[in-house]
Simulated scan of single mutants.
Amino acid sequence: MTENEIAKHIVDAAYKIHTRLGPGLFESVYESVLAYELEKRGLWVTRQQIIPVIYESVRLEEGFRADLIVEDKVIIEIKSLEAIHPVHKKQLLTYLRLTDKHLGLLINFGEELIKDGITRLVNGL
């Protein structure tokens, strides 16, 4: 399955979840439900995967944690905020760079309309 095909499933699942649950829940709730919904669709999902930082050839495991990684290809960063700030996009771009992955989705379930809460980010590698 390509990254774009995976992304279509993710966006569709986010829309379904937002329609049923609406905005205002904790990020952890959306993460659990989105992982469940994607696994129901037959996708392999990893939650809270550690993304290590390599500094001067030392691997630091306490680097970052990706909310969800789908099919080991697409990183999802979940928010439940009134507004996304530039730092949130930088965070996801850093995850993409550190993992050598190409596609990430920043999903803000706090938006009134989920279509306004989905940002697609690409790592230029």
Rank of each mutant, 00 (worst) to 15 (best):
V74T: 01
A35Q: 14
W44I: 15
E5H: 08
S28M: 07
N123L: 08
I50K: 14
E112K: 15
R120W: 08
V29M: 11
I54K: 10
P52F: 01
P23E: 13
G104R: 05
G22T: 01
L60I: 15
I118E: 00
K73F: 12
E62L: 11
V74L: 01
Y55M: 10
Q49N: 14
I76E: 05
Y55P: 01
S57Q: 15
E27K: 12
G42F: 13
G63T: 04
E3Q: 12
L25E: 04
G104E: 03
S28A: 13
A66E: 11
Q48E: 15
G22H: 03
L103S: 09
L81C: 02
I76C: 10
V74A: 00
I114V: 07
E61Q: 12
D100M: 01
T46P: 00
L25P: 03
L103C: 04
Q91E: 13
I10H: 06
L34M: 09
E3D: 15
Y15L: 08
E56V: 03
E82Q: 04
E39C: 10
Y36N: 13
K115G: 08
E39F: 02
W44P: 00
A83E: 14
L93A: 06
L96A: 11
E112G: 04
P52S: 10
H85Y: 07
L125S: 15
S80E: 00
R47N: 10
R41D: 02
Q49W: 07
N108G: 07
R65L: 11
L93Y: 05
L25S: 13
L34V: 10
T99W: 09
Q91V: 10
G22N: 13
E62K: 14
T99E: 15
L106Y: 09
T94R: 11
I69S: 08
D100Y: 07
R20P: 00
Q49L: 14
G24Y: 04
N4T: 09
T2M: 04
E56I: 02
K115D: 07
I84P: 10
S32C: 10
S28F: 04
I78V: 09
L103V: 06
V74H: 06
L121V: 15
W44Q: 14
Y30E: 09
L98N: 03
P86H: 02
I10P: 01
F26M: 14
L43F: 10
V33D: 06
K115R: 09
L106F: 03
I10F: 00
I114Y: 11
L60C: 12
V11A: 06
L81S: 08
V33W: 01
D67G: 10
L93C: 12
T2P: 11
E111M: 14
D72F: 05
T46G: 02
I6L: 03
V87E: 08
K89T: 09
A14Y: 00
W44M: 10
D12F: 06
G117L: 03
E5C: 01
P52I: 04
L125H: 15
F26A: 11
K16M: 07
L25G: 00
G110C: 08
N123D: 09
I84Y: 05
S57W: 00
I50M: 07
M1H: 01
V53L: 15
I50N: 12
L98A: 11
M1A: 11
S57F: 02
L21Y: 14
K73W: 09
P52V: 02
R120V: 06
D100A: 08
K8P: 03
L92K: 04
G117R: 01
E5W: 01
R65Y: 11
K8E: 15
L113T: 05
